[in-house]
Design a protein around this nucleic acid. Structure first.
Lengths: 205, 205
DNA sequence: AGAAAAATAGCACGACCGGTCGTGCTATGC
DNA sequence: GCATAGCACGACCGGTCGTGCTATTTTTCT
């Protein structure tokens, strides 16, 4: 078995564990075990716990890219694309096959006060993602779908809040209405941003 | 030194550690050390790690009660009280003297997929808190400060999102504009809820 | 087929984990 | 003045942590 296959298996199993147990809940032994590897075999791939965490986080964002960004880019630019991306974003982790929540969201609360390279990396990922959201929003503004004077950063900031609230509601509270609530909040946010009302478009899509 | 003093010291030191390191980052040894106790001495007070976590969470909400709820109740009932509570809520942990973030917020993302008594307890705390927010909101509605047909649960849901977004922005991203953004979002939320516009009231209070 | 190189396993380490044990101390009730 | 009860201690349990070092297997290249 080639090393790259092993590495892929490793990232796959590790990412699932990460999404369930969080960064500090992760351990080399358990990841190695889940990947069918010895602890030292795994250690040959990642040279430290930190590097394992970073590699796993990276694998997570790559998975998110394939699961939410790429499909969203097939939608028409502007408001439509933004809407589709948000819909794909909410709860993406389970749709991507993970058995836990969004690893980055968890890390945002876990690494509050833990300096180091992992925190740095998460900050980078988060800023990249927010930049992406801001970019799509700007596009919608420029295409005339949203208000010209929209405060884009504020828009993205509030959107992230909806994502987090949805994460808590659906994953922790197991509230079955979580997605409905989130969509209602997004609609209100978009409404304030100047998007035309959308009455129940594709409620079942 | 009396036992209740010791217990108070224990909860105090442990709560600070909890807010910095999260639940799974906590360890009996470190808490004992921080409280100036031996591990077994600590064990005489809490009979297990789970019970320590629960006791600490409880101490955290008690601290929050004193720091945000009690002062807010001195404000006039209705919209004013609601506004004051939100303002005191955002970033309460640092004002309460903790060196980390809100322990419950962190737990909401940490215990996603970890069943057990601690998760149960956090769920209880969270539901209690949301109930309290809903109560204050309902009061504002009944006093005519907010729209009669306001969807209160939806309002609270979005408010929690703002809190979470503010938590990430201020604590993880260290964004200095976090509080400004949060207040702007709250104003928009209140505006949609039928509150009269408030132009720059107490911008420096 | 055989040598070179890469990939994985085995093993040992020191530290720390949650938890238990027996043992004193100290304050209180009789 | 003495028994009792609770608090805190240090030592220690089996286990797991992250991390090295050394074999051994597997692949690759000649």
């Amino acid at each position: 078995m080639s090393a790259i296959d092993t590495r892929a298996r490793l990232l796959d199993a590790g990412l699932d564990l990460l999404s369930q147990d969080g960064l500090s809940g992760l351990s080399l032994g358990r990841v190695a075990n889940a990947a069918g590897l010895s602890k030292s075999g795994l250690f040959a791939h990642v040279r430290s716990k930190d590097q394992l965490e970073i590699a796993l986080l990276e694998a997570g964002t790559e998975l998110a890219r394939r699961t939410v960004l790429v499909p969203a880019l097939q939608a028409a630019p502007g408001l439509t694309r933004l809407r589709v991306l948000i819909e794909l974003w909410l709860g993406w982790s389970v749709r991507a096959g993970l058995h836990g929540g969004c690893p980055v969201a968890a890390a945002l609360f876990e690494l509050d006060d833990r300096p180091g390279p992992v925190r740095e990396h998460v900050a980078l990922l988060e800023q990249r993602w927010r930049g992406l959201l801001a970019g799509l929003t700007r596009e919608a503004v420029e295409l005339g779908d949203l208000r010209q004077d929209l405060d884009i950063d504020q828009f993205v900031w509030e959107l992230c809040g909806i994502y987090l609230s949805h994460h808590v509601a659906s994953r922790f509270l197991r509230d079955p209405t979580a997605t409905t609530r989130a969509k209602r909040a997004v609609d209100a946010l978009l409404g304030r941003a100047g998007a035309p009302d959308v009455q129940l478009t594709e409620t079942r899509a």
